[in-house]
Design a protein around this nucleic acid. Structure first.
Length: 433
RNA sequence: GGAGACGUGGCCGAGAGGUCGAAGGCACUCCCCUGCUAAGGGAGCAUGCGCGCUAAAACGUGCAUCGAGGGUUCGAAUCCCUCCGUCUCCGCCA
């Protein structure tokens, strides 16, 4: 959420910066709305002040056993105007809140202006895509041939966009998550957390998924009057919400948290995209990094956090590149985002495997997540997060990049301890009857 | 699932329709006192928003906020309703 003060005082420059995201927002009604708000709020508070003053008099008079009917009559005169003013002001403030809740974050000055992903800026490449001397297969062909990846059964159990893994694939999937968690906790200074996979609407509002993006979520209705819950689309939601409505002591920052969870996305707007394989699923695992930092440290933290994600790819020796998302491709809540894209030889391209964002105070304002600053005053924190990494896509990347001519898959050295020492996946087990 | 109790400032805790944004304590900040071992005295100390002043603060003033939202009332922390949550007992259970 943007600062309402900023909107009031610098509407034009805010509108301009938001327009760089591609869809210009119509602020034409805003100025009139704001003018009405200002006079109405002042008038309402004035009336409330009169009512409060008179009511206090009534209390005093009655306390002394005196007649208060004259003052009561005075208050009665205020009543209708006050009620009307309060009602109208409530409407106006409701409209402001709705506008505010739907406005995306301001892109940082360093974000390149562009209309879509073609405007994203490549920052760096790491590693060299391997040259294959045999026809490259994708993870679906490789996995199904090994009998370790089964989409047909997943479809039977649940539907499209789910996967069943078996044997060494399942273990590799688990190994990846363990390896990532161990690296971030042991080498990057993160504290591992375990959180709910179902969250309430307040939490999703806090990180920015609600109210605008409800159709991307799986909603779990409950009883008649009970509030619905939602399956988390990312651990960002429960983990960042740890600090919702909190005022943190100054010494507790930065908070560096890492969390492995499944993520659930309805992929409502993605019908027909990436329908093959494990790239885009309704359910996938992810290891997420979250940092809650002092506002002056967030840009530094953004670089650091991105490096932590890159470190995983480097340890796995997977070629990748780092992209700075342009204004048109930037997510709703982010001020700046680096996407890490891993090389997928079967697609002969780089595909997103991590997204590392600085939200500055945008989420913190929604969350009312604050800390006591140097003046001992509550001040909004800055929040950041990044995938490090999406586990399913990492598995895809390993299977495809480490494939051998015979259809077996070499296990990257750093993962072998997690795989019982195995150096490759090759034997066909659990083949379909 | 059944029965009961409860939700107040950073924390603990009083208040039970009127001058209460809220006693008292702890913590914290500043000042004074004090040559010692978590000593004493004084002052300050919630958040958001509006308006004024300001370069911006500080400051002044008003409004709102005692889990959240509604209601009753001239007036609600206090009464009523709904929701959220906590605790105790019983039942059930991975």
């Amino acid at each position: 959420m943007l600062d309402i003060q900023l909107l009031r005082s610098q509407l034009d420059s805010v509108a301009q910066r938001l327009a760089s995201r591609g869809k210009p927002i119509d602020f034409s009604g805003f100025t009139a709305l704001e003018a009405e708000r200002k006079t109405l709020q002042t008038r309402t508070q004035e009336l409330q002040n009169q009512r409060n003053t008179l009511s206090r008099q009534i209390g005093m008079l009655k306390g002394k056993g005196e007649d208060a009917s004259a003052v009561l009559a005075q208050v009665a005169e205020l009543k209708s105007e006050l009620e009307a003013a309060e009602a109208r002001l409530g409407e106006l403030l409701g409209q402001f809140n709705a506008i505010l809740a739907a406005l995306p974050n301001l892109p940082h000055e360093s974000v390149p202006v562009g209309s879509d992903e073609s405007g994203n800026l490549e920052q760096k490449r790491w590693g060299t895509p391997r040259a294959f001397d045999f026809p490259v297969q994708d993870h679906v062909d490789l996995g199904e041939a090994l009998g370790l990846l089964d989409f047909a059964t997943a479809t039977k159990i649940a539907g499209a966009r789910f996967a069943v893994m078996k044997g060494p694939f399942s273990r590799l999937h688990r190994a990846l998550a363990q390896f990532m968690l161990d690296t971030h906790t042991a080498e990057h200074g993160y504290t591992e957390v375990y959180t709910p996979y179902l969250v309430n609407a307040d939490s999703l509002f806090g990180t920015g998924q609600l109210p605008k993006f409800e159709e991307d979520l799986f909603k779990v209705p409950r009883g008649e009057d009970a509030q619905p819950l939602y399956l988390i689309p990312t651990a960002e939601v429960p983990v960042t919400n740890i600090v919702r409505d909190e005022i943190l002591a100054a010494g507790t920052l930065p908070l560096k948290l890492v969390c492995h969870t499944p993520c659930f996305r309805s992929e409502a707007g993605s019908a027909g995209r990436d329908t093959r394989g494990m790239i885009r699923q309704h359910q996938f695992d992810k290891v997420e990094l979250v940092q809650i930092v002092h506002p002056e440290k967030s840009w530094e933290a953004h670089e650091e956090l991105t490096r932590h994600a890159e470190a995983i790819l480097e340890k796995l020796e997977l070629p990748y590149r780092r992209m700075t998302l342009c204004t048109g491709d930037l997510g709703f809540s982010a001020a700046k985002t680096y996407d890490l894209e891993v090389w997928l030889p079967a697609q002969n391209t780089y595909r997103e495997i991590s997204s590392c964002s600085n939200f500055e105070a945008f989420q913190a304002r929604r969350l009312q997540a604050r800390f006591r600053n140097e003046k001992n005053k509550p001040e909004l924190v800055h929040t950041l997060n990044g995938s490090a990494l999406a586990v399913g896509r990492t598995l895809v990347a390993i299977v495809e990049n480490y494939q051998n001519a015979d259809g077996s898959i070499t296990i990257p050295a750093v993962l072998r301890p997690y795989m019982g020492g195995a150096g490759s996946i090759g034997a066909k087990i659990g083949a379909k009857a």
